[in-house]
Design a protein around this nucleic acid. Structure first.
Lengths: 232, 232
DNA sequence: AATCGAAGTTAAATTTGACTGATTATTTAC
DNA sequence: GTAAATAATCAGTCAAATTTAACTTCGATT
């Protein structure tokens, strides 16, 4: 079955919101995510509900049905595979691909996406570190937390960053943070919540990053480091 | 300036029709090309005219302005570059790419298309032999004629075939005709206009092709052959 | 020059997705 | 437990692109 770009965008927005926040998503949250008005969202939710893509209770909120989730994951799969293509093959920078991928994700051709997947050699993550759902909609989830919530002294590895803010991505380029970078948290400034971190590269650099930045970087506790600690 | 997919499709249709037939295109011809109704065409022509994309005189017909032509050529450039990508990189067959390219041609990103052009190594022709307009809209035009109009005995080379009919392309695959194939016209059957041709490959094969087929294959008089004749 | 049929146009209605303004539910604060 | 604040919905419009049905215009023929 085929859906309009508008419908697909709503399903994707609901999916993203129910990932980051709670399972059940509010009308206003969707309106903000899509830069539209709550009244428009109400209209569309009625429509999606009649197509059994969402569970919608008036005034209470909305969640994806199995069917809705599988459509959303399919859009996400397409978006992220195209991002890999744009960066790896066409040599775009990672801060330039989101907008174009927003258009490409609505191209309808199952066959093309499977061929693209082969061509890209079955990537598991997009250029921002977000996992790519497989054909069946399975998605690798590793335990992560925002950099802003890591405790002092901990060593972590950058897993992913928000792909929708080009300014953030350009900033990270400039200070030398990329997917896979190892960071150590040195100090948390009480005044504004800034973090002092060491960025391990060819040489270790110390930086101060704002909460705005650290909230948008997802990290894992570094396993190698963990083992080393255990060994002691 | 940005145009809707509908506007772009109309401009492309007018462009194609004014190439194959005359400069000035009729409402009904456009309606047929786009599988829509003449009334819809009238409405759109008024709109395109107010945007200075076409010269439109009620009841008389329509032609592209310079501006309209350059938009049309840009869409054609995108369509044909994507077709090259789909065949060369993703390994689609030449009969499968038209539909998908019809969607991809509406993606908006000048930058992406120029990067795609680089990535594909500046192809001059798409998989069906149609020339790809360059950045400025210049397009290579070689003197061609439909196979159906070639005289008996002549040796010709296949330059291009219609990309919009998958059945034709599959048929050509089956009988071993591809872009660049050399054909010799043996006989024209008076009854239905069928042609008997020799297809030169690893071995030469004789075939009978219907007018439907021969009208959709564009060929050039073979140059090597011409020289050989001159030499005599 | 009157007319007939084909080609083309207008008018009115439909569909999709959005917006504005008014109204109704739900929560929160006291 | 009620009033104010917040959230969500409803009703009415709008714009784009289409369709159907009814009406013009053109031009070829008589």
């Amino acid at each position: 079955m085929d859906f309009s770009s508008a419908e697909e965008n709503y399903l994707k927005a609901i999916y993203h919101l129910s990932e980051t926040d709670s399972e059940i998503v509010s009308t206003n949250a969707i309106a903000e995510e899509l830069n539209t008005k709550p009244a428009s969202v109400s209209d569309m939710l009625k429509k999606l509900s009649s197509k059994n893509l969402v569970n919608y209770i008036r005034y209470k909120g909305v969640s994806l049905t199995e069917k809705g989730k599988s459509v959303a994951l399919w859009i996400v799969r397409k978006h992220r595979l195209w991002e890999v293509f744009l960066v790896e093959k066409l040599k775009f920078n990672w801060d330039e691909v989101h907008e174009v991928a927003e258009q490409l994700e609505h191209i309808k051709s199952r066959r093309m996406i499977e061929k693209l997947d082969v061509y890209l050699n079955f990537p598991k993550f997009d250029p921002h570190g977000d996992p790519i759902p497989d054909k069946e909609g399975n998605i690798a989830i590793l335990p992560t937390l925002p950099l802003s919530e890591v405790s002092i002294g901990e060593v972590v590895k950058v897993v992913s960053v928000s792909d929708s803010d080009a300014n953030l991505l350009q900033y990270l380029d400039k200070v030398g943070i990329s997917i896979g970078s190892e960071l150590q948290i040195v100090e948390r400034i009480a005044f504004d919540g800034s973090l002092e971190i060491n960025i391990k590269g060819s040489e270790t650099v110390s930086r101060l990053v704002s909460p705005q930045v650290s909230q948008n970087i997802l990290v894992t506790i570094d396993n190698k480091q963990k083992k080393a600690l255990k060994g002691k």
